[in-house]
Design a protein around this nucleic acid. Structure first.
Lengths: 236, 236
DNA sequence: CGGTGGGTTGAATGAAGTCAATTGTGGTGG
DNA sequence: CCACCACAATTGACTTCATTCAACCCACCG
């Protein structure tokens, strides 16, 4: 659906400060690094788990297609989505030093992941260890940026930050920066942003009423990017 | 001061799920690994920066003594403390793949850090790369646990979670688990927990009024650990 | 078609924030 | 030694933003 909106894209400034992922100058993407290996591929359908917390960790998973979420569940049932993941992201790195997975990874729609046998690749593929370290550090910076955002921004600013960040990520992947298709429910979005789903809905409605975005169910068009940035700057 | 309260300690259950740091079975601590190297040591005084965001990253820093905070500052001046660090923690790992530091690291009181020349140690010291990876993954899990806590808990529960988590950490280091000396101001604590400093004060006062803790400025005694855990479970 | 899950909207409530005044503490210099 | 100052912490009164609870709508699918 959204795949039909592929466009050539100019770089956009992300409101978050985690400095993108991969693709630094001279640093080959993980996908390029692994392309020629005979990796097992696994197809997933919506709501299907790539893995669950507690399961033995055999592989890392490189997302080749589709959108995923990773989430944490506490013993008393509280859940928190720790991130939405897409093509080029690695699933499972957070437990790289453990025998079992530390979170759930769930497909938001159909998708494909490549199974990476860590031990074999780690000392057989030059450059992999370095990339892995970078992925881990990158995740930390991304998490910190979101901590900063969730701890200091209003509901409206959080939603706007999310939209602009998603826009920038999709653009990096070659998608349109202004026509977003949310793969997650309002509840998931609220969970990630530490807001109630009703609050998410209300904010989206208000942004639309102010002419900043167009919302049709999960399809969002960014109508006034400057206006959105102005909201972040506190210029009401 | 608190150093005089050294005691032998029994393991305690942490309310957070980031599975401790280091010290897994058979896994030597970073300090043990680096003890014999001729590392440059650096002493710091309260409020002194180990490094600042944007500075060239020459070393990693292993905390040998003292307490530190790491923090992020956005372009528009919003600040967020990403963690309080203590003996055995590594400072600077979040930018391990970057030429410049991505956060500020500040001493909360006098302290000592060991400068680790990453490049040299990385391929000269067997086991270091593995430990580094574990440290990074550990930080991610810790961050996620706090995201979960901040996103789902009330002010009171956040403060209690912090106290119990700090207690567990200090115990691991050989300090008393029930007599805590907070090294940070109420403002810092509030910042980390995404609360206002007044709220932190109020919560501490209320916990004291209910006989769960004793508060004297920055010295806190845990008087009723079971009662604190009950608050987390929602049993008012 | 009827049902089910996701989404929207309204009204009332409440937990934490804001603003402000006061107290306590530790350091400094007269 | 004491007076003073700057800063940290506490407490109170009031406000507000987001939550809660509820009703309703709508699209999709068996």
């Amino acid at each position: 659906m959204l795949d039909s909106t592929l466009v050539r894209a100019k770089p956009a400034l992300s409101p978050l400060a985690w400095s993108g992922n991969a693709h630094h100058a001279g640093c080959p993407s993980l996908e390029a690094l692994l392309r020629d290996l005979p990796l097992q591929r696994r197809h997933l359908r919506a709501r299907q788990h790539v893995f669950r917390a507690g399961q033995p960790r055999q592989f890392l998973y490189l997302i080749h297609a589709g959108f995923f979420k990773t989430s944490l569940i506490s013993e008393d049932g509280r859940e928190k989505i720790t991130g939405f993941r897409m093509r080029g992201d690695l699933l499972g790195v957070d437990a790289i030093d453990l025998p079992r997975h530390a979170c759930d990874a769930i497909a938001l729609d159909v998708g494909e992941v490549w199974e990476i046998p860590v031990a074999e690749v780690q000392d057989g593929l030059p450059g992999f260890q370095e990339r892995l370290t970078a992925v881990l550090a990158n995740e930390i910076r991304r998490d910190w940026s979101w901590m900063l955002a969730l701890g200091t921004l209003t509901a409206e600013q959080r939603v706007v930050t999310f939209l602009l960040d998603l826009s920038a990520q999709l653009e990096r992947l070659g998608f349109s920066a202004s026509r977003l298709l949310l793969r997650m429910s309002r509840a998931d979005l609220g969970n990630f942003l530490s807001l109630q789903l009703e609050t998410v809905t209300r904010v989206l409605s208000r942004l639309q009423a102010n002419g900043l975005i167009d919302v049709v169910r999960r399809e969002i068009r960014i109508a006034d990017r400057a206006g959105l940035h102005a909201l972040l700057a506190g210029v009401n």
